[in-house]
Write a protein that binds this DNA or RNA. Structure first.
Lengths: 107, 107
DNA sequence: ATTTTATATCGCAAATGTACGATAAGAAAC
DNA sequence: GTTTCTTATCGTACATTTGCGATATAAAAT
């Protein structure tokens, strides 16, 4: 597997996007937006997926930096990582801001 | 493979995110933002990837609706699909707007 | 110390993604 | 009609992702 070196922002944006690239993970984050936090078990009740599958999705979201886990033994409380959330938001926001000249498509 | 039925917006957002989930595709779209349009061959010169690989990435971006191809025989001119772009932008934008009460994380 | 509770990790199978070279397809130019 | 140019598609190899059940871990409660 060759690895091209893109600009750090490009890589970062792609990493965030990849983490968001599954409906279950989007739904988990939306749930977290409403609840502000939750335990793994809450999600297992909400989604028709095995506990191990939920845990795996949480792991990916944590790895991407979009959520963080806090130990509340014997549970783990997950919240959105607001700092990285803002970073992702800013990256997507600036990415989608296009300013194309209207007459540019003439070739 | 079980298929959970999420809300259409959730699915749509995940589809867009998935399409953006590779640095090469992000870079292609950034290139298109600057150039406003381009041919496949342009990209093959810019990226150290085989022509078939570039073509595959373009196919995915087209399938996701983020770009569109216009026949300019013998070439194909690719531009950003502005209508869907705005849709994606709106989806990401509203997704990232969180309004969490400060005192919510108390459980 | 054993049991209970909550979550993570392992091992597996199936599906999907990424990259390549080779080949096909389409239109233009000769 | 053959050649040329540009792009798409095919076939293949390897890596990653997604899902599950089973098992491990870690702390609390008994």
């Amino acid at each position: 597997m060759e690895h091209i070196n893109y600009k750090e922002d490009t890589e970062a944006l792609a990493r965030f996007a990849k983490a968001l690239g599954h409906p279950t993970r989007i739904a988990i984050l939306m749930y977290l937006e409403n609840q502000s936090c939750c335990f793994t078990g809450d999600l297992v009740e909400v989604f028709p997926l095995a506990q191990s599958t939920i845990s795996q999705h949480l792991k990916e979201l944590k790895l991407a930096g979009l959520i963080q886990g806090e130990l509340k033994p014997p549970k783990i409380k997950y919240c959105i990582n607001h700092e990285n959330w803002e970073t992702a938001k800013a990256l997507f926001s600036s990415f989608f801001e296009i300013h194309v000249a209207d007459n540019a498509c003439t070739s």
